[in-house]
Simulated assay, not measured.
Amino acid sequence: MDIEGNKQLQEDEIIVLSSIYESDIFYPNKDYEGDKSYTFKFPVLNEDDFSENDIEDQENIFLKLNIFYPETYPSDEPPIFEIECTWTEKGIDISLDEKYKKEISNKFLEIWNDFKGEVIVYEWVQTLTDYIESELKNSLIEDIKKNNASTTISLPVTPDTKSPNDSSEEDDLDESLKSMHITSFSNAPIPEGVKMPEIFSSKEPIVDRKSVFIAHIASIQYVTQVGMVVRELLKNKKIAKATHNMFAYRIEEEGGVINEGNDDDGEHGAGITLEGLLEVIDARNVFVMVSRWYGGIKLGPDRFKHIKDIALQLLDEHGYVQHKKKGPTTKNVKKKSKK
């Protein structure tokens, strides 16, 4: 299908969604003016929920699903998405556990694989609505009651907000690893004789509106090597200071089982984009990370294109782009959950 065909299907889908949902639930995303982007706003917890659970003086909590339409949707690629959870009245971001973000991403990917070539945003919305009610809602209530609404709130740690006591490089490195949710990778036992893989980085970055993107790859055979490679990369102060270091890996284990996973490092949707890229080119036994230094100007969905392009370029240079998958794999897939 050509770009015009995709454009028509997208416009038809937007008309249908606008007829189903009220304008305060589904509306254009004004943060990315000029881009084809829309937002769904879902209530997660309201005053009645707080009252029923004896939680006082709390305001409504909403979850937002930001959808970006690439030119290749729905013929070749799914929409790009971001998930935000905010305590609207307080203006505070609530950091969803990686478990929830990963589960939502996996559900979306399953739907895309089942309906590839068709518009799927409505199915995504229905799935997310069900997930909020069945999983997310009760978990947030338990966290708020248990921690008096404190530990569900996560503020980003930047060089300006770090404590003076966090001066040692090792402490900084451990904090970076913790924020990327790979502590379990770093602390896991490494099979005897496994050495640090050789790491290759992009020779030339992609630069767009002052944002800089560089990719890094390494050949790996064990999931524990993910932690080894990330720790080694973050020893480079320039990489450690990147705004985001998103990564994905894909390993073929015994019996043909594919073990794959990703981490957004705060750039929601980037990890699953990289994981999807590895799956599309059927790359195996490889780790890929993309470092992004934010230049102060929002790129909208262009940032996902740059993340994918810089990773694909480096993967191609090192022989990982051999063939594209023709259809869904018949092999078992084992996902690594983050903790």
Rank of each mutant, 00 (worst) to 15 (best):
K325E: 15
E118T: 06
D263K: 08
N187M: 06
K64E: 11
L173Q: 05
D302P: 00
E118V: 03
F200C: 00
I92L: 13
E142M: 09
E317K: 09
D130S: 15
R231Q: 15
D172R: 15
S37Q: 02
P79Q: 10
E47Y: 11
P79G: 06
L274C: 05
Y122Q: 11
L96K: 10
D93R: 15
T243R: 13
S150M: 06
E142H: 09
L17S: 00
D48N: 14
K107N: 12
K195M: 05
L173A: 04
D35K: 03
P205M: 14
P78K: 11
S95L: 13
L299H: 12
E13M: 08
M180H: 02
E123V: 02
L312H: 11
S134Y: 12
V125Y: 05
V212W: 02
K339P: 00
Q58K: 14
Y21A: 00
V121T: 13
D265W: 02
I67T: 05
K241E: 14
N106S: 05
D31H: 12
V44Y: 04
V280M: 10
I94K: 07
E317W: 05
K335V: 13
L177M: 11
F304V: 05
Y100P: 00
N236G: 05
S23V: 04
I20D: 00
Y294N: 04
P197R: 11
P78W: 10
P301M: 10
Y32L: 01
E110L: 08
Y100K: 01
E279Q: 13
K338Q: 12
L314R: 08
W293T: 10
K146T: 13
P191E: 11
F200G: 00
T151M: 06
L274N: 03
E118Q: 15
F185N: 13
L312D: 00
I141N: 03
T158K: 09
Y27E: 00
K30Q: 09
E82M: 14
